[in-house]
Design a protein around this nucleic acid. Structure first.
Length: 840
DNA sequence: TTGTGGTGT
């Protein structure tokens, strides 16, 4: 039904093409009224012209500018021009060799000069706010200059004794912003201005401004909970709400209460700055408005292809294709950015678009343009990704079909048209089942706005939404933050180590559900990281030092006992990276679009050589050892159809783990296993809670879930993932007992990364871990509820996990807490709703 | 019998 509607609408588009007016932007808009409900919208307020405070501000600015230029010239004198040019060439050389720098070219390509950045007009106001308050929340869109200028202002105005630390959610951002700021200040990167990301510390004793990924700063807290090194912390891009940023809210707030000489700046791009201010004791909110270009937003009027729980059909791919073609045929030049949810969808849309554009012929497009269709998603190689950013000739229009990587991570220059499917693929975690699933869910209203804003970066733009305005109103105001949909074991262990005894009552910016907390505490206890009273054990202290999930840390520490540290380190590193198996996916022919693409037999044969009958962990060890034996030869890896990126990543992680293990255990020489048994025993110590026993016949891949620290009655049968070594033909005899790394739900509950183990080891581990009292563990914050233990919900695993977070109504597990969290969340948004409604 | 959004230590 809905399929038919959207195809019909698409057809109507095609038929209407000749009636579309071409004169002016305004007139053109009205021609869409039949299909689209449109309106013009400024994505932010215009700048401060005519402001009564202008004179005062101007005077203040003059003073600041004078003082700034004095300090600049001091800086310049310090650094003679000859040295500067040497620095520049050094920097250039460095940037050519560093992989993280490769991506920087498409992060904010337009290097605006400081003087024209909006933040400049607000310097005096901002500095005054910082002067008078310990915490300031600053709202500013991308392009306001806050990230590059604010830290410099803090440094220059206050000349603090400690560091100005600026967090970024992504590594590329940390590196590129640091590079930019160092350039502006004419200093060598790594001296006055530096950055720190995993595997790379580019700071020195003279460093005063330090850009750092939020994950890195969380780690730093372990050694320095009060952040003594810092005078200012700036939590940038707080609206992205990564687990680490959320965690830092609490940690910095705690540090602020104990240190009077620390100040905090929180910056965010969303409407939700009020909630941040509320959390930090009603601190002031400053706004840096950005003059962006207006974006006309059109909603689909007839198509209702979105339900509250997700897409009701996959028709949106076809309708997205129709809209793109329509834009290409009727609209002026400017690139098109289309949002879909995943690789398959994107590849499919790209084939359809390429074929249709070819049929159309260049002559039919507006001004006779060609359409160059390019995919953009995370698992593409760097080179393939860069194609989306390469400039094209004047006769070509690019259409980039992207995942939400283009929503926050990267900016494609020259985009004037955005087509938004309204969906995103999101990982959700079900703590009651300890199972994660990747589900397609509707985006939030903030995300919808973010996507639309992508059309107004270089000039006036248009955004076509494949959903109605009613759908928009039914969306969540904001994306459910990550901290509410992930496993918390790691987070809670950090908090405990940092001296937060009561992790249930911790002052979270957004409190996780009780189920999440209970699950994580019980898991930490079962691994021996917490004792019966919820205190961190020495073992837990060591585990927290490793940058891994607790189960893997536990396995590594057990490997020390079992004498197989080298092997288990390798396995841990291999389990920490993305898929290592690489296969060419043949492009589906046009007429075969709805059939699955053929499997790559050659790659499969190459992989089969590595598959070990014992299971995946041993297989990974073999793969890495084989690569190591060939001196990490890149060609060998390519020939074996292995992902070079994943392998290199694993090698880096392995190196880092080695260092950390050295520090955590004081070991200098690492043991090496004599047999496979020791390795499997060590892994069992970390993963005995994730275990299954075989059902029936020897060759079956069906297992029954074994009871762990939580009863899991909903989840009876679990399956070996077909990509596992244990699912391959060479594994004739399936092991009686297995442990698995993770449980993912797609069409069934699948175990990923599976290893055969002995039942006696499982029994032994279970006995060692003992039984915990949840109320004791949580210092009375959580109770063993009858519902949790005897929860025998009628739903099968399918429904429950599919529903997950996407369908709040169906979340049966501790409804109270989730409902309460949601209510708080919605209440907080209430204040902003009026503005939201006006703006959409 | 599968196939995976994006981050990060």
């Amino acid at each position: 039904m809905e399929n038919a509607t959207s195809t019909e609408a698409g057809q109507k588009f095609q038929d209407n093409k000749k009636t579309v007016a071409r004169e002016s932007g305004e007139r053109e808009d009205t021609s869409y009224v039949d299909d689209w409900v449109g309106h013009k919208k400024e994505f932010s307020r215009s700048s401060s012209i005519g402001n009564p405070n202008r004179k005062r501000r101007h005077d203040a600015l003059k003073r600041y500018f004078a003082s700034e230029s004095r300090s600049r010239s001091r800086e310049r004198r310090r650094c003679s021009s000859r040295e500067r040019s040497k620095d520049r060439s050094r920097r250039r050389r460095r940037s050519n060799t560093r992989s993280t720098r490769e991506k920087c070219c498409h992060i904010d390509p337009e290097h605006q000069h400081e003087e024209i950045l909006p933040v400049y007009h607000y310097k005096a106001e901002l500095m005054q706010a910082v002067c008078e308050n310990r915490v300031v929340v600053c709202k500013g869109e991308t392009g306001s200059g806050k990230t590059t200028q604010f830290p410099q202002y803090l440094r220059d105005e206050f000349d603090p004794p400690g560091l100005v630390g600026v967090t970024q959610p992504r590594r590329v951002a940390a590196v590129s912003v640091a590079t930019r700021v160092a350039e502006e200040r004419h200093v060598k990167l790594g001296e006055e201005v530096g950055y720190q990301i995993r595997f790379e510390d580019c700071t020195g004793p003279q460093t005063r401004i330090k850009f750092v990924t939020d994950g890195c700063l969380v780690r730093e807290c372990l050694a320095d909970p009060l952040l003594i090194k810092y005078s200012f912390i700036m939590l940038d891009e707080a609206h992205e709400r990564s687990v680490n940023t959320d965690l830092l809210f609490g940690l910095v707030k705690r540090a602020l209460s104990m240190r009077l000489d620390l100040k905090l700046v929180v910056t965010s791009a969303t409407l939700d700055v009020k909630a941040f201010a509320e959390y930090f004791d009603k601190c002031p909110v400053k706004e840096i408005p950005v003059r962006t270009h207006p974006v006309s937003v059109y909603h689909s009027k007839t198509k209702v292809i979105m339900t509250r729980t997700g897409p009701s059909s996959s028709a949106y791919v076809q309708s997205l294709v129709d809209v793109v073609i329509k834009i290409h045929r009727t609209q002026d030049e400017g690139h098109i950015l289309a949002f879909l949810t995943g690789q398959d969808e994107i590849d499919k849309a790209c084939s359809l678009l390429t074929a249709q554009a070819a049929d159309l012929g260049a002559s039919q497009g507006e001004a006779g343009m060609d359409l160059l269709v390019l995919p953009l998603y995370g698992s593409l190689s760097g080179e393939q990704q860069l194609r989306a950013f390469h400039p094209v000739g004047p006769g070509t229009r690019k259409c980039i079909v992207a995942t939400n990587i283009a929503e926050t991570s990267v900016t494609v220059p020259g985009v004037r048209y955005v087509v938004d499917s309204g969906f995103v693929k999101q990982k959700t975690y079900n703590p009651a089942r300890r199972m994660e699933s990747l589900v397609v869910v509707p985006i939030s209203r903030v995300a919808a706005e973010q996507r639309a804003g992508r059309a107004g970066r270089t000039g006036p733009g248009q955004c076509y939404r494949l959903y109605s305005r009613e759908c928009l109103e039914g969306m969540m105001p904001e994306t459910v933050p990550e901290i509410c949909r992930c496993n918390l074991a790691n987070v809670l262990l950090y908090l405990k180590v940092l001296g937060v005894p009561d992790v249930v009552d911790f002052d979270y910016f957004e409190a996780p559900s009780k189920d999440q907390l209970a699950e994580a505490l019980l898991m930490l206890h079962s691994l021996g990281a917490l004792d019966d009273s919820g205190q961190v054990t020495p073992l837990g202290q060591s585990m927290a030092r490793l940058p891994l999930d607790p189960a893997l840390s536990r396995a590594i520490l057990q490997a020390v006992e079992e004498g197989c540290l080298r092997e288990v380190l390798t396995i841990a590193a291999m389990l920490s990276v993305e898929n290592i198996w690489f296969s060419r996916k043949p492009k589906p022919a046009r007429d075969k679009l709805d059939r699955p693409p053929e499997r790559d037999k050659e790659a499969e044969r190459a992989h089969a050589r590595f598959m070990h009958p014992r299971g995946d962990h041993v297989t990974y060890l073999m793969v890495f050892a084989a690569w190591e034996a060939r001196a990490f030869d890149e060609q060998w890896a390519k020939d074996a159809f292995l992902s070079l990126r994943a392998l290199k990543n694993a090698r880096n992680i392995r190196q880092q783990l080695e260092q950390e293990v050295r520090r955590a255990t004081g070991l200098t020489a690492f043991s090496s296993a004599k047999d496979m048994e020791a390795i499997c025993r060590a892994l069992t110590a970390g993963f005995f809670n994730n275990a299954g026993t075989r059902c029936g016949a020897e060759a079956t891949t069906v297992y029954k879930h074994m009871e762990g620290y939580m009863s899991n009655e909903d989840l009876k049968l679990i399956y070996v993932h077909p990509s596992s070594a244990l699912a391959m033909n060479n594994a004739r005899k399936s092991p009686l007992c297995v442990i698995y790394h993770e449980l993912v739900y797609t069409s069934r509950p699948f175990m990923r990364h599976v290893l055969g183990v002995e039942r006696s080891w499982l029994v032994e581990c279970r006995a060692r871990s003992g039984k915990a009292s949840l109320s004791q563990l949580s210092l009375g914050g959580l109770q063993e509820t009858k519902e949790r233990d005897s929860r025998t919900s009628t739903a099968d695993a399918t429904e429950g996990s599919k529903a997950g977070i996407a369908t709040p109504r169906k979340e049966k597990t501790d409804q109270g807490a989730v409902a309460a969290a949601r209510a708080r969340f919605l209440a907080r948004k209430e204040a902003c709703t009026g503005r939201l409604k006006m703006s959409v």
